[in-house]
Nucleic acid binder design. Structure first.
Lengths: 345, 345
DNA sequence: TTGTATGCGTTATCAT
DNA sequence: ATGATAACGCATACAA
């Protein structure tokens, strides 16, 4: 009824139907304070009857403001991102922005392409855990407001996790339980997040007099964690801190396959807290509050877009250890590691 | 170097720099076959030097084609969607489309708003598991090409899962193991997907002479599944088919809390296969191939946009049972349920 | 308070 | 094969 044909009416049709100029219709939707309440109301009524909706494309071309933001992530399917995306989306929505989602598939060059391709369609970018090199990031940031998540580049607005606090708590927790030898199973070496976490782990371990070995997981995935288990078992560690929850989960699976019990034979600590209590046993992990990170990034971007200013804010989100059930005291005899079940008898 | 200032050059600047008309520059990027190879190359060179990128907004306004598609989902954080989104995103990218992501937060009215707000900026929609009522969906579909995922509305192009096949296999599998009383823990009653699955379960159970009780999980989440457990234990079922993997996982957690062992005391079957083997024990589930659904939906939309035709395709993606470790024969004595541990002694 | 006229960057129509 | 020019739908100086 409201829309006789498939086409949505334009501002011109509303104007003539309401007996006003196009400018008045425009103002009705963009700057109603310039109009008499009566006019606005009348125009609104006509517009509603006709099913008129301001054309955002035309608006964008005219004003230079797209009303959109872009969120670019390395892998949507990584459980770290959905909560972040969800929260960002919700905040953007409140602020009246629609969001483009880009998945770079962990490839820096894909990030670069996405960034340039949609630049004209968005007012700003949020780059989550970008793999792109610093120089390129700066180039893009020079064109449009750009917020970084999980990457600390001087001079750019960014939202970070307080990795140090969480990791320190985790290592202290393990030390308190009596662990002396622990492993850090790392994520992508090129990842800033990984470097931060590894560095923090090394520092905390040193301070507490623990030995820490780093074991690479080629990919920050379940499979990556699983694949790291053989090398993990070649060491004599009694506890493992994983790059993230996904890797931790993979490690747990790999251990289970080999009959190594968690936490009896090996304590595990994850990072991110995105699996909640959804592992078995429920995972002890460092909560990174990724949803909050997403929300804060959008807020930051919104402020920049509103003010036109360019504050190089550096938001740090606190992290903290959440102790669940994958950590406990090490077994008495740590000697015969490598064949833990045999050693137990 | 390539970009002296923050602003990207317009077609006019490229034109004058290359000593050609704006039309020629335009053709260089949209219809190069109309130009001499020499001209295209020359213009391209100048454009590259200046850092020119065609402005998609202006393009959209001029052509009516936005070069974008919208993907709307009820909840990004539901593990069913990330693989779907990821696959859709990848396909869209190949076809040169950027994608808007909308999260309706399971609210029909939010879907409605998103749909109308973004309409002008996209060439078509993909609506995954829409909660919106059929009439409204049709209204939107009349304006722009719209593909449905997980919703069967006559006359609209849609991508569905062959729920019947998977559920039938699941029930048959349980029957074969010796289960006689099974439960279906349902998802959102308003959800078409839930109705399909429940219907299929009822039908399959009847055919095999099993009794099936339906137990509601208010929300299709981990918590929802967990909350359904008390009611589940009040019945005398020995096996449960859950609305989806998330609910199944919640049920497993709820059972574990109460000392009910899976699969010894209760067999569990999920749906979707999005948790892979990431539960403990690894979940027996119906694989729904949601990534493929996302990809197919984009392909379908692409075809429609290319051809301008409006084929009301109905793509059905096969599903099949994946047996892992949460299903086994029922315990001998089923009498004293409700306090399964006591009964065991 | 409202109307008039111009421009946003591009494509498409019509010439040449 | 290329150039001139009018849309596309809207916002906004400027005028009234």
């Amino acid at each position: 009824m409201t829309t006789p044909k498939n086409r949505v009416p334009t501002i011109t049709e509303v104007a003539s139907a309401a007996g006003v100029s196009r400018a008045t219709v425009s103002r009705t939707f963009s700057r109603p304070e310039l109009l008499t309440p009566e006019t606005t109301e009348r125009v609104r009524a006509v517009a509603a009857r006709l099913g008129y909706v301001p054309n955002q494309v035309a608006r964008a071309l005219s004003t230079g403001r797209a009303g959109n933001i872009a969120l670019i992530v390395p892998d949507i399917a990584n459980p770290f991102f959905p909560p972040l995306i969800r929260a960002a989306q919700a905040r953007a929505d409140e602020a009246g922005y629609a969001v483009f989602l880009g998945d770079s598939d962990e490839k820096p060059e894909r990030e670069d392409i996405l960034l340039t391709k949609i630049a004209a369609q968005v007012d700003g970018f949020i780059l989550a855990s970008p793999r792109l090199d610093e120089q390129r990031v700066r180039v893009h940031a020079a064109r449009r407001p750009l917020i970084l998540i999980n990457r600390d580049i001087e001079g750019l607005p960014r939202v970070l996790m307080d990795v140090d606090a969480g990791i320190t708590q985790a290592i202290a927790h393990l030390a308190e339980l009596g662990h002396r030898h622990i492993a850090y199973v790392s994520g992508p070496p090129a990842s800033w997040a990984n470097q931060q976490r590894q560095k923090a782990a090394v520092k905390a371990a040193k301070r507490l007099g623990l030995t820490l070995v780093a074991i690479p997981a080629n990919h920050p995935t379940y499979q990556g964690g699983q694949a790291a288990v053989p090398e993990l078992l070649r060491t004599d560690v009694t506890a493992t801190v994983a790059f993230d929850d996904l890797v931790a989960q993979g490690i747990m699976a790999g251990l289970a396959e080999r009959g190594v019990q968690v936490p009896r034979d090996m304590s595990i600590v994850g990072f991110d807290d995105v699996l909640a209590a959804r592992t078995y046993p429920p995972l002890t992990t460092v909560a990174a509050h990724c949803a909050e990170a997403g929300a804060r990034a959008v807020e930051l971007l919104g402020e920049i877009l509103q003010s036109g200013r360019h504050p190089t804010a550096r938001v740090v989100i606190p992290t903290e250890l959440v102790v669940r059930a994958t950590t406990s005291q090490p077994r008495r005899r740590q000697a015969g590691r490598g064949k833990p079940l045999a050693a137990a008898s």
